[in-house]
Amino acid sequence: MKKGLAEASDQEKQRKGQALVEKLRTIPGAEFYPPLNALLNSVPEDVADVVCWPDEVANALSDAEVMTHELILNGKRLLQGDETSIKVIFNNLTGLNFTPERRPHGEPDEHELYLADMAHAWGVSEWRGDILLQAFGGEVMKTHNFC
């Protein structure tokens, strides 16, 4: 039977803490995810003192593992999330997912309504300039220019 953290020895807790710190430090873009970055900055260089990790560490880790991509409009981050979701939202914003080929039963003004809703949600005054889909670390995967 597997022991829970409460029943684990201090040595086991220390080993699990060290493994977690190593995993946290290998997440791409961890420095861009504020809760995880704060945790990493609070970890002592020598993690030998780490005995027990609170739940927020595990939660930040699971959230950060999916926070790998972001949407940037004219240099301002609009959204961050997992690769699939961010790609879908990018394709929605650019209108690709509203084309008749992808949405044969859609209404003609659906894309404009979607843009208006997203502008309101993100505080965007107008859709102008460049939007980037990029991975954390700066690799630009797709761009679109709103004319």
Rank of each mutant, 00 (worst) to 15 (best):
residue 140 V to W: 00
residue 76 K to G: 01
residue 101 E to C: 12
residue 125 S to G: 08
residue 91 N to D: 08
residue 97 N to V: 08
residue 125 S to N: 10
residue 76 K to I: 00
residue 87 K to C: 08
residue 107 E to G: 14
residue 106 G to F: 01
residue 113 L to V: 03
residue 121 A to K: 10
residue 85 S to N: 06
residue 99 T to M: 11
residue 97 N to A: 14
residue 76 K to E: 04
residue 128 R to N: 13
residue 117 D to C: 12
residue 125 S to T: 10
residue 79 L to W: 06
residue 116 A to K: 05
residue 122 W to V: 05
residue 127 W to G: 13
residue 92 N to A: 15
residue 89 I to H: 13
residue 89 I to L: 15
residue 82 D to R: 05
residue 85 S to Q: 07
residue 92 N to P: 10
residue 102 R to T: 04
residue 117 D to L: 13
residue 89 I to S: 13
residue 70 E to N: 08
residue 90 F to D: 05
residue 99 T to Q: 11
residue 134 Q to C: 10
residue 78 L to Y: 07
residue 115 L to A: 13
residue 137 G to P: 01
residue 74 N to Y: 02
residue 82 D to P: 00
residue 97 N to I: 04
residue 126 E to C: 01
residue 122 W to T: 04
residue 73 L to W: 03
residue 132 L to Y: 13
residue 129 G to T: 09
residue 105 H to R: 04
residue 86 I to Y: 10
residue 95 G to M: 02
residue 107 E to F: 15
residue 120 H to R: 08
residue 83 E to H: 13
residue 110 E to I: 00
residue 136 F to N: 05
residue 114 Y to S: 14
residue 75 G to P: 00
residue 118 M to R: 11
residue 73 L to V: 08
residue 86 I to R: 03
residue 125 S to H: 09
residue 136 F to H: 09
residue 115 L to I: 11
residue 98 F to A: 05
residue 110 E to G: 07
residue 110 E to V: 00
residue 140 V to D: 00
residue 113 L to D: 05
residue 79 L to D: 09
residue 81 G to W: 01
residue 103 R to A: 12
residue 122 W to F: 14
